[in-house]
Amino acid sequence: MSKVPQGESTHEWVKDYYGKLLASSDDLQTNACCAAGAPAGWIASRLQHVHPEVSERFYGCGFPIPQAVEGATVLDLGCGTGRDAYVIAQFVGEQGRVIGLDMTDEQLSVARKTEAWHAERFGYAQPNTSFVQGYIEDLKGAGIEDASIDVIVSNCVVNLSPRKDLVLAEAYRALKSGGELYFSDVFVDRRLPEDVANDPLLHAECLGGALYQFDFETLAKATGFADPRVVSTSPITINNPEIMAKVGLASFVSVTYRLFKLEGLDAQCEDYGQTATYRGGVEGEERLFWLDDHHAFEAGRPERVCGNTAAMLASTRFAEFFEGKGCRQTHYGAFACGPTMAAAQYAGREVESGAVGATISAPKTSCC
């Protein structure tokens, strides 16, 4: 197999692929960079207000649109033409701010030229978006200050980076305490051979750079994101015989993760006798809120939670939507972590308009 062209960095090859070789998502050789399934209704209603040119040239493997971000500052890593940024701009409101960062001039050109169009479409006096050229491994170089961001999102971009450790470290630095990295990306069930990982087409198609999921979680924890949470997982099918032959039996999935910047989280689930009751109010999940793929909270229904889950609900932007009881003064031992009562009851059922509960696999012994 060939490697990324000699004398050309991974960054330059990816920039050329997405900036010059691809005219639209129809030109992709696989569906790895295409979101599977339909977005939830509360997201779909905002997608209707995104400029067609932005949507046509957007590439992503999920819908990492964060909830409860009114008035927040959100950073979109590898924003491309800005589809997700413009969806999120509607949720943060006129007083919020969305910063899109990308290294590809052609993509940024599309995002920037539609800023005024989107502001008018949203009914804003001024755009609440800005788009900057830069690298996701060097946010400081792009002007992103320490502890300045409430939520960082990314859609099928981290896999393209040759230094994923720097991506996570920079995200952690830029987030405020209690902030979140909420992103979708491609992962694989094994460590890929070097010839597969370095194949230029596989890399640009979001397969070659996919991380073995357990290696990613180890890296995230070492960076400071102590308890990575899986929100959803979708299979990726490669309908291309030539590429299927190259990757062999490796299996790829699109995973959406929540990584919170919280101090003092435990290395595993611990029991402090705490409960959390959802008050309702999160748009799109007014009756049933999913924190991750096995923690769902029905409005008004108390759920026992481990210390880490309690912190994720009490020390983040979700605090106003939850009533917590108990504290960490008394430790009762390891927490037998499995699906919450609501998660077990509503898994796979459509509870809100367009929102379907996660499919729960075997209960986990730990969230962490």
Score class of each variant (00 low, 15 high):
V231P: 00
V151M: 09
F260K: 04
A44V: 06
R317Q: 14
K20V: 12
F318H: 01
L288G: 07
T223W: 11
F321A: 09
L77G: 11
A125F: 07
M244W: 06
Y59R: 00
G324I: 15
V196C: 04
V69M: 12
D293V: 07
F187T: 09
Q213T: 12
A40F: 09
P64V: 09
Y346N: 08
M244Y: 03
S130L: 14
C61V: 06
W117F: 15
P52I: 06
S366V: 01
E350D: 10
Q95A: 14
E194N: 15
L249E: 15
A35F: 08
L202G: 01
N198R: 04
A38C: 12
P200Q: 13
Q126I: 03
V230A: 11
S45M: 11
V98D: 02
V50S: 08
A111E: 03
P241R: 00
V356G: 08
A142H: 07
E320H: 12
Q126W: 14
F252A: 06
G338I: 08
A111L: 13
H51G: 09
L265E: 13
Q48G: 11
A226I: 13
R57K: 15
D293R: 13
S161E: 01
K246A: 15
D146E: 14
H294E: 15
E303F: 05
S45T: 13
V253M: 13
R83H: 09
E94R: 12
L108A: 02
Y59I: 02
A23K: 15
I238T: 04
Y346S: 06
V282F: 03
V231E: 10
E286L: 09
H203T: 13
R328H: 08
L192Q: 14
R191T: 15
L291P: 00
L101Y: 00
G60S: 11
D150M: 02
D84I: 01
L28D: 02
V167R: 02
A111D: 01
L175P: 01
L101A: 04
Y346G: 01
E56N: 12
D102I: 09
D16Y: 14
L28F: 09
D185M: 07
L160D: 06
H118R: 07
Y272G: 08
C79Y: 01
D102E: 03
P302L: 10
N239V: 00
A44N: 10
P241K: 08
R173N: 06
G273P: 08
V255I: 15
V167E: 02
A245Y: 05
Q95M: 11
E12R: 13
P363T: 13
V14L: 09
V230S: 09
A245R: 12
D271L: 08
C337S: 14
V196L: 09
G19N: 02
H11P: 00
G19W: 08
G357D: 06
